[in-house]
């Protein structure tokens, strides 16, 4: 047997497997759509805003509704107690801003 025969066969097998997986992603995606639609309907009915992924603190359970200063939630300069806080992105500081005593002054 030539050395390429088993190697090419193995590569072809892996390629077929990967193609099957991609097909599965498409096909299973279609059948999962029904479940997702039900979930979305529940979200709409309950008015949910965040997935229940990390429930340990207010700002990790509902990051989209959390206070602006999540890193120091409990006392000034109080560091994060919870591990999932470390895998949350830091909020971006405001890119632009202006100070003024009236709205006209700020929008000038």
């Amino acid at each position: 047997m030539r050395p390429t025969t088993p190697v090419f066969a193995a590569l072809a097998l892996l390629a077929v497997l990967l193609t099957a997986e991609l097909a599965h992603a498409r096909f299973a995606g279609a059948s999962a759509r029904e479940r997702l639609a039900q979930e979305a309907a529940l979200v709409a009915a309950l008015g949910l805003s965040d997935p229940a992924l990390f429930t340990e603190a207010r700002y990790t359970r509902h990051p989209s509704l959390a206070d602006g200063m999540a890193a120091f939630q409990d006392n000034p300069m109080g560091f994060d107690h919870f591990p999932s806080g470390s895998v949350m992105p830091a909020p971006r500081p405001p890119i632009s801003g202006a100070l003024g005593f009236s709205a006209e002054e700020v929008t000038q």
Binding site: L53, F54, T55, E56, S84
Partner: peptide, 8 residues
């Protein structure tokens, strides 16, 4: 996913 006590 996170480290919650009851993660889904």
């Amino acid at each position: 996913k996170g480290w919650s006590v009851i993660y889904p």
